[in-house]
């Protein structure tokens, strides 16, 4: 795999080298026990014709937390945004390759990216609640998708989502207050509640704790740990300690290549690639 991603000639190939794909899948023992939620085949992303991701092949298990780590600019956030087609909203961005979600190509012609994003929720780096009330923030998704025909249904969804995000007790008496009036950590849990409210199958998190203090971060990690029972979670993080704490599988990206992908424990204790080892021991990145 290392050879495939660094070798210039093999990068020019159009079809994925099946031998390497099989080898990679074999190197992911968890894939044998759980079914894959996403199967990525030779995924490439171009910004204005410049290639940011170099043919990524990776299976994401449908349960547990998968962490994407790597130095800044390595393409991990770009890769994350492939799964809910958020790259579509960036002008001049183009995605090539194949991403199957439950064996269905999410870049296929019959896929509506708007509906896909209801199935694949996302939490961003900076908490971004709408300048609306806490209630309206959570109710936003259910309203646009028509999930709650009656007011009481909507109330139930809002309450359940806030509970699941561990925020209900803190905000239940002030649901009419502005979402932006909450603290950073509360805001981040609010946007998680907002994402949960449309009952997604997958939650993508793009460095969700990078703007939070250590206590809020600990709470968030606790929440991620609970959420993984119900949702497939992909998390991009700069903190290797966080990846080690919350994830079951870890993928290490470097300069647009997927260098190594394995059980989190293996990555942190027994990395196969020198670059991975250098990164997790703090020698590079």
């Amino acid at each position: 795999m290392k050879a495939a991603s660094t070798n210039y000639i093999s990068d020019l190939r159009l079809k994925p080298n099946m031998g390497e794909v099989i080898e990679m899948m074999a190197s992911a023992p968890a894939a044998e026990t759980t079914q894959a939620k996403f199967e990525c085949r030779n995924v490439e992303v171009f910004y204005s014709g410049k290639r940011a991701l170099h043919g990524i092949n990776m299976d994401v298990p449908d349960s547990g937390v998968t962490a994407l780590i790597g130095p800044s600019g390595c393409g991990k956030s770009t890769f994350l945004r492939v799964f809910n087609r958020m790259n579509d909203t960036i002008p001049n961005a183009r995605v090539a390759g194949q991403i199957l979600m439950d064996r269905q190509d999410i870049y296929g012609k019959d896929i509506d990216p708007v509906l896909l994003r209801a199935r694949v929720g996302m939490v961003f780096q900076k908490p971004n609640p709408f300048p609306k009330s806490i209630y309206d923030n959570v109710a936003y998704g259910p309203r646009i998708h028509g999930l709650a025909p009656r007011k009481s249904d909507l109330d139930t969804i809002v309450e359940k989502s806030l509970m699941r995000a561990g925020l209900w007790d803190e905000v239940k008496d002030r649901l009419k207050e502005a979402g932006t009036s909450l603290s950073g950590g509360q805001q981040q849990r609010l946007v998680i509640a907002r994402a949960i409210a449309v009952s997604p199958e997958v939650i993508l998190m793009d460095e969700p704790a990078s703007a939070l203090d250590p206590i809020a971060t600990a709470k968030l990690e606790e929440l991620i740990d609970e959420l993984k029972e119900k949702y497939c979670i992909l998390i991009v993080t700069h903190s290797m300690a966080q990846a080690a704490r919350v994830s079951q599988k870890t993928a290490f990206f470097h300069l647009g290549d997927l260098v190594e992908y394995d059980d989190t424990q293996t990555i942190f204790t027994n990395p196969k690639d020198q670059r991975t080892q250098d990164y997790i021991t703090g020698r590079t990145g």
Binding site: N84, M86, T89, V114, L115, L116, R117, A118, G121, M122, F124, K126, N128, P129, F130, P131, K132, Y140, G141, I144, H145, V191, R194, A195, V198
Partner: peptide, 24 residues
């Protein structure tokens, strides 16, 4: 980030416009 949030929840461009951008 507000646009991203709305798109990521599965809102269309016009829904994002009328329900998020315009009030803001």
């Amino acid at each position: 980030t507000l646009r991203d949030a709305s798109f990521a929840l599965g809102a269309t461009q016009s829904e994002t416009m009328t329900k998020v951008i315009f009030p803001a």
